[in-house]
Simulated assay, not measured.
Amino acid sequence: MNTTVLTATSQQTRIAGHQYPLTRVVTWELRRFLASRLFWFQALGFWGFLLLIIWALHASDQTGTVAGSEQLSAYVAGTSAGGLLRTLPTYLIILALLLPFVTADGVTRDQQRRTHELLMTTALPTWAYVWGRYLAGLMMSLGLALLLLASILGMGGLLHLTVADYPLPQIDAVLLLWVGMVFPATILVSSFGFALSTLFPRLSTLVKVVILVAWMVGALVLPLGLGKTTPPPAWYVNWDPTSGITALGLRLSYAIHLGPTITNEAQLQQLILTVENKMPDIAGWFAPHLLLAGLSLVLVLIAALAFKRSRETLS
């Protein structure tokens, strides 16, 4: 009887050990991340750098006019909806510089360390191995994106308390822009970096470089070029994954039209306040950005299906 009980218990333990393999992989990877001191130093450094940049850009967009013989000037708050359309693409560039290094090596790291074949001899399903590594990296990437959100709201609140006439960030507008621009971009960059590095492990470094260069061109170079000529085409505004052109197109509705009724800086700042805190118009661009993020998951699925448990040679 004791033998029967022990055997049944042993079988239940083995069965329980094989349940939820995806959860086990994700948990293991998250523990590895969180146990690294380097990771915490990098996260704290990233947060501090974001706070510094947000503070430096909190009044970068100055507006002025002349009332009689007096020169009037005011600024658009960097953490308002109108201000974020000017600064958020810059924050996304900083975020995009880090994301490929967080997610791209989820699978290729084992191949580079020559532990790939050893892991593949276990009973761990291939799909759980690939998707578990991806989801763990994606969670860490979304954690960095949440740090950006916390930095915007936190620094905006601090500036509201310490700088005269600085408006408190409108949480609904900030969240809307974060969900529509930062969240999809995080998934997109993480998915592309992970999937392409998994499909082409020998080109992992090249994949990271290509993603970074492409993002810089889309978020910085193209908006600077288009901003000096004609307004960007509507389809580009709606489907730009970097949000550089999207923000450029949306900023047209935040244009400040100064009239003869403005006679002092208080009136000018009040006019700017009513414009900069408008809720962004989500028609046209919001759904395409989320769709691009969803389509990037298809690339991860392809990488998971194409992944081979064994290779002919180690490199």
Results as ranks from 00 to 15, higher is better:
M140V: 13
L119Q: 15
Y129K: 05
Q170W: 06
E117R: 08
A150E: 04
S141T: 05
A136L: 02
E117N: 09
A123H: 12
T121Y: 07
G154Y: 11
M155Y: 07
T122E: 15
L149H: 01
T126L: 09
G137E: 02
L168T: 14
L118W: 14
I171R: 12
T162V: 15
T126A: 12
L147V: 13
I152N: 03
P169W: 00
W127R: 09
H116V: 00
A173Y: 07
W127M: 08
S141G: 09
P125F: 00
M155E: 09
M155D: 03
Y134C: 06
W127N: 08
L138A: 07
T121E: 15
L153N: 04
R114I: 01
I171H: 10
L168P: 01
T121Q: 15
D165L: 12
M139F: 13
V130G: 13
M140F: 07
L147Y: 04
L138C: 02
L118S: 14
I152Q: 04
G156V: 08
T126Q: 13
G137Y: 00
L144A: 07
P167A: 08
P167Q: 03
T115N: 15
W131C: 03
L158P: 01
I152P: 10
M155K: 06
L168K: 11
G132D: 02
A150T: 10
Y134D: 07
L149S: 04
M120W: 04
L153P: 05
T162N: 10
L142I: 07
G157W: 13
H116F: 13
L124E: 15
I152A: 07
A136M: 04
W127V: 06
T115I: 10
T115M: 14
L135P: 00
H160Q: 12
T162R: 12
V130R: 06
A150G: 10
A123W: 05
A150M: 11
W127C: 05
L144S: 01
M139V: 07
P125M: 04
G137N: 04
M139C: 06
G143Q: 04
T122G: 15
P125K: 02
T122H: 14
Y129P: 09
R133H: 14
L148P: 00
